Simulated scan of single mutants.
Amino acid sequence: MRLANIWRLGIKELRSLWRDRMMVVLILWAFTGSVYVAATGIPETLNKAPIAIVDEDGSQLSQRIASAFYPPFFNPPAMIAQRDVDAAMDQGLYTFVLDIPPNFQRDLLAGRGPAIQLNVDATRMAQAFSGNAYVQRIIGTEVATFAARNGRTEALPADVAVRSRFNPNLTSLWFGAVMQVINHVTLLSIILTGAALIREREHGTVEHLLVMPVTPFEIMAAKVWSMGLVVLVATWFSLTLIVQGAMRVPIEGSVALFLLGAAAHLFATTSMGIFLGTFARSMPQFGLLVILTIVPLELLSGGSTPRESMPVFVQDVMLAAPTTHFVRLAQSILYRGADISVVWPQLLAILAIGAVFYAIALAQFRKAINTMA
């Protein structure tokens, strides 16, 4: 009877969700349009960065350097005077200002090792970080080519051969698309289960459940499996049709193994949604609780920033969060093609954390049910 009750209550939850059109629209958008927009909206390379050049040399080499900056990476360089540099930077007109000193070409050919000054507006973090390397590479290439044509060549003592594994072209679309799906698994599972509980309270159906021959365990288990199933199907749909189909992002590992890990993760996050739903008295209150919960879960899980770059205290605390292990499991499978022999520690950790979260949520849910009674 317990399994039958859990099954029937879960079907009731699915029907109730289907009648909530706004929630259905949210699920569809989160796993389709949101994934596509977020992934394609990340600039893959430097794009139309404003740059100005102070040419105090007026030589053939300085002209070659100035002509090497062109769209789409940079806007056409603006030639300005030295006295205008500070004012232009203060007004935020340029991200980069390149100052080529007098006699730069002559000193280079004489072997004196001249220097070029590059001023960077570091308040434009994205452009400053990636553009700095672009500018140095462009200048180095032009100077080396010019020096070689004029008989000055210096062989480097060693060469570095760079091979980027798992993402050879460093395409940010590959990372953004998959991580957006991973983040939505956590976000939607918490929202759906918590909203299902609050919807029961707002519609007055909790009182009906209290007089039925069902236990709090059965009510909670029904919400967990039904809402978890919705998120799991939406995740498979998004990975197959949006990520692999529309955006042509290669998935290296087994999607079935990833969905197994996602199901274990949903066991923990749906329990978390029930737990938050017992404290909230309305959807606005629940929304505030979700914000306070989901932001640290996603930012500190290692998906956006490597965990090794975080303080040791944060690393240790986040080991208690299921998202930390799920992000590592998902990236290992989807990016690096790992199998069960590699990700089983993360899978067990997620299941253990999920069991603890479920027990805590069930205790709080029983307490909330008794209060309503």
Rank of each mutant, 00 (worst) to 15 (best):
L197S: 05
V206F: 02
F237P: 06
G228C: 06
T240S: 11
E202T: 14
G194L: 07
I191Q: 06
A195R: 05
G245V: 11
L239F: 07
W236N: 06
V181R: 00
E218W: 01
G204I: 10
V231R: 02
E200T: 10
T205H: 11
T205R: 10
E200F: 01
V230D: 01
A195V: 14
I219W: 00
V230N: 02
H208L: 15
A234H: 05
R201G: 00
T205P: 05
L187W: 08
E207T: 14
V231S: 02
I191Y: 08
T205A: 10
L192W: 01
L188C: 13
L229M: 13
P216D: 07
R248N: 13
K223C: 01
I219R: 01
V230W: 02
H203R: 12
I219P: 00
L229W: 00
T186M: 14
L229T: 15
V214N: 09
H203T: 15
M212W: 04
L188Y: 04
A222Y: 03
V211P: 01
S189C: 12
I190K: 02
A222D: 07
P216I: 05
I242A: 05
G245T: 13
T186K: 09
F237A: 09
M220W: 03
G245Q: 13
H208R: 15
S226W: 04
V211Y: 10
L241S: 08
V224D: 03
A234D: 09
E200R: 10
I219Q: 10
V214C: 09
T235L: 01
V185C: 14
V206W: 03
G194F: 06
I182R: 03
I219K: 03
T186E: 13
T215I: 07
V230R: 06
E202N: 12
V211A: 11
S189V: 06
M212Y: 07
M220C: 04
V214F: 04
H208T: 15
L209H: 13
P216M: 05
V230I: 13
S189G: 10
S238M: 08
I182V: 15
A221W: 02
S238Y: 05
N183A: 13
V185D: 01
Q244D: 12
I198V: 13
A222W: 00
I191E: 03
A222I: 06
L197M: 13
L229Y: 01
R201Y: 08
I182P: 00
I242S: 02
M212E: 14
T215W: 02
W236K: 01
S238Q: 08
I191F: 09
L188I: 15
Q244T: 12
L192N: 08
I190L: 15
R201I: 13
V224S: 04
L232A: 13
P216E: 06
R201S: 05
V230C: 05
P213N: 10
F237M: 10
V211H: 12
T193K: 04
E202K: 09
H203I: 06
P216N: 02
V233R: 04
V233E: 08
V233I: 15
E218R: 03
V214L: 08
T215Y: 05
R199E: 14
G245L: 12
L232I: 13
I198F: 00
H203D: 12
H184G: 02
R199V: 07
V233D: 04
A246N: 09
F237R: 03
E207S: 13
R201D: 11
N183C: 08
I191H: 02
I242W: 04
I191R: 01
